[in-house]
Simulated assay, not measured.
Amino acid sequence: MASGQAPITSSELANLWMAYQEKTMMLRILEHLIEHANAEEKQLLQSHYEGSQKNIETITAIFQQEGAVIPIGFTESDVNKGVPKLFDYMYDIMYLHMMTKIEMSLYALFTGGSYRKDIHYFFTGLTAEAQMINGQANQFLLEKGVLVRPAYVSMPKEVTFVHSNDYLSGFDWFSDKRSLNTIEVSLIHHAIETNLVGMQLMIGFAQVATNDEVKKYLTKGMKLSKKIEIELGEFYRQNFIEPPASHAGKATTSQTTPFSDKLMMYNTSLLTTFGLGSNALGTAFSLRNDLPAKMTLLAKDIFAFAHEGGKIMIKNGWMEEPPQMEDRIKLTR
């Protein structure tokens, strides 16, 4: 422990450990993407890569100061260099855009669970870094015409209040039910956009996985992403809005794996966990009862998928165990 500093708490240890797992995974993914990126894309990817390296060094130093073992995370053995690219035109930046969304949420949560000044400051910096890279990726994709903006609406001219419980009702073709409000449109757009990028990731991962069980699981993930996109997209179509879609960012036909099955399963697990959180947010903030009902049903599918993935990871020895609380109660006969 550093001189004059309080020992790190259980939540701080957990947050640092999870950040180490995510950051080491990102290094391996970025190594493959950078290898095949053009000069313009490479600059943005390299910036995040170098930032991740420094962040891993900071976490390692804290663990060493506290006398904690350094996690394994993901190493050079989890990426194969010199293989054909797994994803095509612009997917590298689309992936970066998606993953920095996750990092923004993750590290903001970790900031709230940090109490020691240096660790709180560290996660504040990680959050700001993720926001900066996400903004750069966002602008890059918009300029290239790849990222689809949410639907435009007329600006409100007066403040109104809800006076009828009909506002909570779902859509019905045969009655005068309200259209989606802008909060609901925003939540649906985010879910569809993320699942479209995630679906291509699952397609690419599934075709290069070496373990048959993993291959089947990732194929199931591809189908689940497609199901979410279709069913939530129907809410858009009912309101005569076309769901977001992009001509870019597809998996190639490469059959040579750049990544270990362990890494691909972890990345899938991270996306699934984020999907559950997004679904919960959508359920909480939507006031049209048919939308939370749909999201609740989809959440059951996502949870079942996540649970199955956890069992596969444990079966193959790929799930690194988080730090445990000491057993303070010894059970005796």
Rank of each mutant, 00 (worst) to 15 (best):
Q5C: 09
T9W: 12
A14Y: 07
N15G: 15
L16V: 06
W17V: 09
W17E: 10
Y20S: 02
Q21H: 00
Q21W: 07
M26G: 01
I29E: 02
L30T: 01
H32A: 02
L33Y: 07
E35P: 02
E35M: 06
E35D: 13
N38E: 12
A39N: 07
E40P: 03
E41F: 03
K42S: 09
E50P: 05
E50M: 10
I59Y: 05
A61Q: 15
I62C: 00
F63H: 08
Q64I: 11
Q64S: 12
A68T: 07
V69C: 06
I70K: 11
V79S: 01
V79P: 00
K81E: 08
K81F: 07
V83H: 12
P84T: 08
P84S: 10
L86H: 09
D92C: 08
I93E: 02
L96V: 06
M99H: 06
K101V: 00
K101Q: 14
K101H: 10
K101T: 05
L109D: 14
F110L: 02
G112S: 03
K117T: 09
D118I: 06
D118M: 08
I119P: 00
F123V: 04
T124M: 00
G125R: 00
L126M: 13
Q131C: 11
I133N: 06
N134I: 09
G135P: 01
Q136S: 09
A137Y: 10
N138S: 15
P150N: 01
V153T: 15
K157W: 00
E158M: 11
E158V: 13
T160P: 01
F161G: 00
V162N: 02
V162L: 04
N165F: 13
D166A: 15
L168A: 11
G170N: 07
D172P: 00
F174L: 14
S179T: 08
N181V: 05
N181I: 04
N181T: 05
I183G: 02
E184Y: 01
S186C: 04
A191S: 11
T194L: 12
L196M: 10
L201D: 00
I203M: 12
G204H: 05
A206V: 06
Q207E: 10
Q207F: 05
V208T: 15
V208M: 06
T210A: 03
N211K: 15
N211V: 13
E213C: 06
E213P: 04
K216Q: 13
K216N: 13
G221M: 09
G221E: 07
S225Y: 07
E229L: 07
E229V: 12
E231D: 10
E234P: 05
E234L: 09
F235A: 05
S246C: 07
S246W: 07
A248C: 14
S254E: 12
S254K: 13
T257S: 15
T257I: 11
P258V: 04
P258Q: 04
Y266A: 10
T268S: 15
L270T: 13
L271T: 05
F274L: 04
F274N: 07
G275H: 03
S278N: 15
A280D: 03
L281Q: 02
A284V: 10
S286T: 12
L287Q: 10
K294T: 10
K294I: 03
T296F: 11
K300I: 10
D301Q: 14
I302E: 12
F305V: 03
A306D: 00
G317L: 04
W318H: 07
P322R: 05
P323R: 02
D327R: 12
K330G: 02
L331W: 11
T332L: 09
R333T: 11
